[in-house]
Design a protein around this nucleic acid. Structure first.
Lengths: 194, 194
DNA sequence: TGAATTGTGTAACAATCGGTTCCCAATTTA
DNA sequence: TAAATTGGGAACCGATTGTTACACAATTCA
């Protein structure tokens, strides 16, 4: 029918995610995005409508790529017991930081930034964090003998811990927290069922 | 010698803190600051040099007003035992959110935002969080019988929890976490010394 | 081959950004 | 009164923001 795209939409979206991940929604300038995605203004606006729509698509991609992957791991009984799976989640976080990844959590950055004013963005962020919350709770069932109330509370504590750590990862502040954070999480888990 | 200031420097700084607290360093525009502080460009630049210097003064003010107050409470043995003092810190946080305060933590917002690129700002943020870290550890000495290593790890866990909660407070996301977060912290404390 | 359709690239848009400089009135102290 | 300093503006800077418009290229289908 007509002229086909010269670029791969999926690759462009992946590149856009990296830019937003590093700079946040508001701080990511259009030139930043154009450079990272390797296309021009006209192509970007024709293919992705505008910056906010692009960001929403990026959030969806992040949700299926990063969040769902983490949740699958948390709920995969073949990957060890619940305790092992939860600790693996936090170990992955620390390992990423030690490798120099200071991007933190795209959802968390979006939640605290100017993006929190926007209802659509806030809803997507909420959905992602709720998924993580559910994954943690599932893993806890397999790790402790807590009743529903305590389980929910423990899941929330761990989710808060997760958010705090990814926040610290982004800050580049060396408060010596990340080094032993996995052991700290293990302490919480091991003592929760007493 | 000369004409005196018509505005109170301290009040202007307080107003500037509110603006930065709500919008973050980069997102706070000069018109935002002028409106909030109630003065004009000429006066602001004459009195506070420039935006960054103003923000550094605001950070100092936040440190002495908010951080030092929290640390004093954590270390005040007249305010109950260590456990009580730590829980009071988190209760204050939850209470503030329930009153509609969604500003979160100025230090944390600065740490994750563009401010983290600046060495001076990063150093000030680091100093504030380290103070909090120390205050928590002092309170833990009064709450548990842990050795130095475990105590440090518990302090870091609580600080991470604190940061995560203030992050959530800023996000306005209702994941049902804040409601029982104090109980969650109490669980961590009560089981830590087992 | 020719018309229709769509992507590409660039220019330009209006608005705002933080920062600076200027002027002059107002007010103080020496 | 004279010197000194602030307040309140206006004006401007170069740069940036996200967005739109338009000419041109490329591809497909009839």
């Amino acid at each position: 029918m007509a002229r086909p795209r010269e670029f791969d939409t999926d690759e462009a979206l992946e590149a856009a995610m990296q830019v937003f991940w590093q700079h946040g929604y508001r701080a990511a300038s259009l030139p930043d995005l154009l450079d990272g995605m390797g296309l021009t203004r006209g192509s970007l606006y024709k293919a992705f409508r505008d910056k906010k729509t692009l960001f929403l698509q990026v959030l969806d991609r992040y949700e299926t790529a990063a969040v769902d992957a983490g949740v699958s791991m948390l709920e995969d009984s073949a990957a060890g017991d619940g305790r092992t799976r939860i600790l693996a989640l936090f170990e992955g976080l620390v390992t990423a930081v030690e490798k120099g990844d200071h991007r933190g959590c795209l959802l968390c950055t979006a939640a605290s930034g100017a993006a929190s004013d926007d209802a659509e963005i806030a809803a997507t962020v909420h959905r992602g964090l709720a998924k993580l919350q559910g994954g943690l709770e599932t893993a806890i069932i397999d790790a402790t003998a807590l009743d529903a109330g305590d389980r929910r509370r423990l899941a929330n504590t761990l989710l808060t811990q997760y958010i705090g750590l990814r926040m610290l990862a982004r800050s580049r502040l060396s408060l010596g927290i990340l080094e032993h954070s996995v052991q700290g999480v293990a302490d919480i888990l091991d003592h929760a069922s007493d």
